[in-house]
């Protein structure tokens, strides 16, 4: 155990557990926890789907149906077309991001102790969405789907035409401006999409760490830090759900925009 200073404490909590994988390095913590949460989330949903009945639903089925209808209503409000893919896409995004964000509720130091002494993994982080890799993976996947649906809805030529001729006009002198504008738009989408979620979750984690550091200074710090941590955790419930919801809505909005003709 190295000497515990504020710097080493923060560093300890914010460093990733890295592992060599396929000739590169991989964040084992983010990958393992996100996969685990994704599997658990989908398994819970699948549990309701397996026994789905059109008659009187069970309690779990009713709860999952509530979630499905909520997601479907939200998606319908921005994308009134065929939702057989966009619906499950938004549902997956919402459930997965919500579960990953919710990992932030676990107390940072207890989890660090658990990872280190029970699982023998040091520098293991609980919150996959506080890793920019995870949020970028999601945002870039949505971005790829956006390009795919743009081309599917307008045709390759139509998409390229829009790239050069929208939004200012199809005059050849405006092509460069149109393209520049569209590139900025296309780049800004996944960036803002992923960094918004990442920033919120990362900041939330940092605040917990700072309060934890204060708690290490003495009794007054321990009491006040504990109280503030509780308050922050309660406020964080809102952030966790809100960020998952925003991420889902933006996913649906971007896919819907891909279908729009200029």
């Amino acid at each position: 155990m190295h000497e515990l200073t504020p710097t080493s404490y923060i560093e300890h909590h914010l460093a990733f557990r890295e592992m060599p994988f396929l000739g590169g390095m991989i964040h084992l913590d983010s990958v393992v926890i996100s996969l685990l949460l994704g599997i658990v989330g989908l398994w819970l949903l699948r549990l309701a789907a397996v026994r789905a009945t059109a008659g009187v639903p069970g309690k779990w089925q009713a709860a999952v149906e509530l979630l499905l209808e909520f997601v479907d209503d939200q998606v319908k409000s921005v994308f009134p077309g065929d939702r057989r893919f966009v619906g499950p896409l938004s549902l997956t995004v919402f459930v997965w991001v919500l579960l990953m964000n919710a990992m932030d509720f676990l107390p940072v130091d207890i989890m660090a102790w658990f990872y280190e002494h029970v699982l023998h993994q040091d520098h293991f982080r609980s919150v996959p969405t506080a890793d920019v890799n995870t949020t970028f993976a999601l945002a870039l996947s949505v971005f790829a789907l956006m390009i795919f649906y743009s081309i599917k809805a307008k045709g390759l030529f139509g998409w390229l035409h829009e790239l050069f001729c929208a939004p200012f006009g199809s005059h050849p002198l405006l092509w460069a401006f149109n393209l520049l504008f569209n590139i900025v738009e296309y780049v800004s989408k996944p960036l803002s999409h992923s960094l918004r979620l990442y920033g919120n979750m990362y900041a939330g984690e940092i605040i917990f760490l700072l309060l934890g550091m204060w708690a290490a200074t003495g009794w007054v710090g321990a009491v006040l830090g504990g109280l503030l941590s509780t308050g922050w955790a309660i406020f964080h419930i809102l952030i966790v759900v809100l960020q998952a919801f925003i991420f889902m809505m933006l996913t649906a909005v971007y896919i819907a925009m891909a279908h729009e003709h200029h």
């Binding site: 990733f16 396929l22 964040h27 994704g38 989908l42 789907a49 057989r84 997956t92 890799n133 993976a137």
Partner: peptide, 28 residues
């Protein structure tokens, strides 16, 4: 370390979406 983590998460994401679109969404 951006790279492999991102790719693996994206692959997992597409698998999850595929699963949801095939086995969760339609029956419910």
């Amino acid at each position: 370390n951006i790279g492999l983590t991102l790719v693996s998460q994206a692959v997992a994401f597409f698998l999850f979406v595929w699963f949801a679109a095939k086995f969760v969404w339609p029956p419910l």
